[in-house]
Design a protein around this nucleic acid. Structure first.
Lengths: 204, 204
DNA sequence: ACCATTTGTCTACAGGTGTATAGTTATGGA
DNA sequence: TCCATAACTATACACCTGTAGACAAATGGT
């Protein structure tokens, strides 16, 4: 991750290194917590190169969020075509929110940057464009956008409590058990229904 | 909120003012974002009084989290005795996570302080002791702790996306619609079942 | 009415923040 | 080979951070 040789003086590579280091740092410490000098050091350059290539910390953050958000698909087509969508997505969710999984970097950056209003606003924009719209388009039935938003809230909540806060029962839970429970939770959001909740008249 | 008269030199009142100001500041800007001078100014004193009364910022945060966490009940007894627990809790959840609701201060502090490891660890402890245990005890059936933890993750996710990030479909959603959807999501976590998800053999 | 104790403020330190200007060194075309 | 240009570094600025020690003043018991 450091350097294979003294192959300096390469603008594109330097820019890429800075962006990669920034993504890692923002995911680790959030927008306010990550310092420009720390990010620069991670890329093997001086803090001033960030100003040169990205203008400001805010711009750098925006690019980092955009890059990280566009990487993992929350509901891929191979999941959608599965006979049991809920269980399939639950399994994927449990896997990518595992305590030390480095996946879902985009959400991790957003969640750890929740203290900053600018960062939160930037994150919101990228979530809505890159995640919510695609998710809503993958769904069928009524209230697609709201259901997609609740799904995203669920993902964010699970990741927050498992990875960020580290809530014990979630961090140490048996993946199988967690998947079963999550499948039941996800089901009403994934399957198409006209009524949001069926009348509890006829017990099964 | 400022001062009715020059009634200074009151140790207990000063301590209370500092704690109140700290809770508001931590909820607004998180652990790292809230400065001691800002908190002190909100209480009408100097930053040094915080050192005097609380020792350190970390101690102050711990007390603020403890106080804020113990205030709102996630699943009160009047909800538990309702005929439709899921819908009742969903309605409450939608209400207290409304975009500008000042409730759930404890969770807001925790979520906005996610960048700091010490703050996250402190939050985790208080969530587990003050929220998770009570919630798990209110439930019936198997996997009570895991189900309670998922419930907490759901609350945190909804609050994050509605209040902190401000995801549009959730922030502007019709409360009735949101309640209906959330009720369906909450149901499998609240009602007692042996199997986490029923076999999808017999289509209704 | 006095004075010790409590309550609060002032000043300061050592370090970190994002950013700007000026200077230095390697690179590639002539 | 030379040297203009692009890539990168050094130094500095103004500000903010949490914390500490020394000082001032109001308070209450005698």
């Amino acid at each position: 991750m450091d350097k294979d040789g003294p192959r300096r003086r390469n603008a594109q590579a330097t820019r890429d290194d800075i962006l990669a280091s920034a993504r890692a740092a923002f995911a680790r410490s959030g927008y306010d917590g990550a310092g420009l000098r720390e990010i620069a050091e991670g890329a093997g350059v001086t803090a001033m190169m960030i100003g040169r290539y990205f203008g400001s910390k805010e711009n750098l953050f925006a690019e980092a969020v955009a890059a990280a958000m566009g990487e993992t698909e929350l509901l891929g087509s191979e999941i959608l075509s599965s006979p049991d969508v809920a269980r399939e997505m639950a399994a994927g969710l449990v896997r990518i929110t595992a305590p030390d999984a480095p996946i879902l970097e985009g959400f991790e950056i957003a969640l750890r940057s929740a203290a900053s209003d600018t960062a939160a606003s930037l994150s919101r924009e990228h979530i809505e464009v890159q995640k919510l719209k695609r998710l809503a388009n993958s769904l069928q039935g009524d209230d697609r956008e709201t259901r997609a938003a609740i799904l995203i809230a669920l993902v964010a909540g699970l990741q927050t409590m498992r990875q960020v806060i580290g809530l014990t029962p979630l961090a140490k839970a048996d993946p199988e058990q967690l998947t079963g429970l999550m499948a039941a939770v996800l089901e009403p959001l994934l399957v198409a229904k006209s009524e949001s909740i069926p009348a509890p008249s006829a017990p099964s």
